[in-house]
């Protein structure tokens, strides 16, 4: 079983939920930028949530399925088509051998996730299949996918096969089919344009003047072109954020969602490929429940930060886990019916 990459798109990488446990050795977490979208995609094809899938960035790849497969697309809607016909997001899709998936150059959001029933056969490096581009490990030979890559797949589970056979029995003679249902938007919504991103004050928040603090929450920020999987460089209205007194800081841990402010005064939000430690003042920390929204803002997109308490942030986290659990239970029933 395999997938063939006819063209790779702008940046298509293999990601799971990240390489956890090695940050003390300076090894970054990597993993899907929009982890929620990857988890949902995996659930939609009957996979464990942490299975490796493809992360597609802005300009999608062209992929041929060398055998019958069950897939799901979540995250950004980059106008996907199968054999030239539009395919809907957020549902199981059966594709028959030889089908070709591609994307249009326009769409909304930034990153699409494709899960394949049974996952991808790439080696696990340090307990993860995620691509770590800088160190050249994980995923497909530690790099982004390129033309001619053939990625082996272990093949779908019995449940997935049974599921698509039922789909085929209902509508035969098609090269591909999609389920008519999709998760309720209360459980999984997907990207939003110009989102409001909730955050809690960071460890060095109190070193910024009250004016700076208010300005940070009030400004609209643009995600600049100098943004990537490591972080978004933001540009505001021109008011630089500055500490009340200039500081020399010793490096300390930073994580996904850390908003740090270098000397020039424009904040940077760290993302999946962030370094493990940093030495800039940390003004805020994005709540985990909003990582999915944040990861879907394309270059040029706008965001605002909204302050919430730590207790609220942790309630949002737990709510998201409850949603995932509910979705998992609902899908288990759907796929066995």
């Amino acid at each position: 079983m395999s997938l063939s990459i006819i063209s790779p798109g702008l940046l298509t990488t293999i990601q799971d939920l990240g390489r956890i446990g090695y940050q003390k050795e300076g090894i970054i977490v990597s993993g899907a930028m929009d982890a929620l979208a990857l988890r949902v995609a995996n659930l939609l094809v009957g996979n464990p949530e942490n299975e490796a899938g493809l992360e597609v960035t802005l300009l999608g790849p062209k992929i041929r399925f060398d055998e019958d497969q069950l897939i799901a697309l979540t995250g950004a809607n980059l106008a996907p088509t199968i054999n030239g016909q539009a395919v809907k997001m957020n549902r199981p899709v059966f594709v028959c051998q030889g089908s070709v998936l591609q994307f249009a150059p326009q769409g909304s959001g930034c990153r699409t996730y494709m899960a394949i029933a049974g996952g991808l056969s790439v080696p696990t490096v340090l307990r993860s299949r995620s691509t770590y581009l800088q160190a050249g490990i994980g995923g497909r030979q530690g790099r982004a996918l390129k033309t001619g890559d053939v990625i082996a797949c272990p093949g779908p589970s019995a449940v997935a096969k049974q599921f698509w056979q039922k789909m085929l029995a209902a509508t035969p003679h098609k090269t591909w089919l999609q389920a008519a249902w999709t998760p309720s938007p209360e459980l999984y919504q997907g990207p939003q344009a110009n989102p409001s991103i909730r955050a809690v004050p960071g460890p060095e928040y109190s070193l910024f003047s009250t004016d700076c603090q208010q300005n940070f929450w009030a400004q609209e920020y643009t995600v600049t072109l100098a943004s990537n999987r490591m972080g978004y460089r933001l540009r505001g209205d021109g008011t630089a954020l500055a500490l009340m007194q200039p500081e020399e800081m010793l490096s300390s841990a930073v994580s996904f969602g850390t908003v740090q402010v270098p000397a020039e005064g424009n904040p940077i939000v760290l993302l999946a490929d962030h370094q493990t430690t940093g030495g800039y003042p940390r003004i805020a920390q994005v709540v985990t429940a909003d990582f999915s929204l944040l990861a879907q803002v394309p270059p040029g997109g706008k965001i605002r930060f909204r302050e919430v308490s730590l207790a609220k942030a942790q309630r949002l986290y737990c709510q998201q886990e409850l949603n995932i659990r509910q979705l998992r239970q609902a899908l288990r029933l759907k796929m066995r019916l």
Binding site: Y22, Q23, L250, T288, E321
Partner: peptide, 22 residues
């Protein structure tokens, strides 16, 4: 996991799991 630095030690956790599912 944990990350030691010069003068700090940071522990990362999953709030859902450490709180016994909320």
């Amino acid at each position: 996991e944990y990350v030691p630095a010069y003068t700090t030690l940071t522990l990362y956790y999953n709030p859902w799991l450490v709180s016994e599912e909320g």
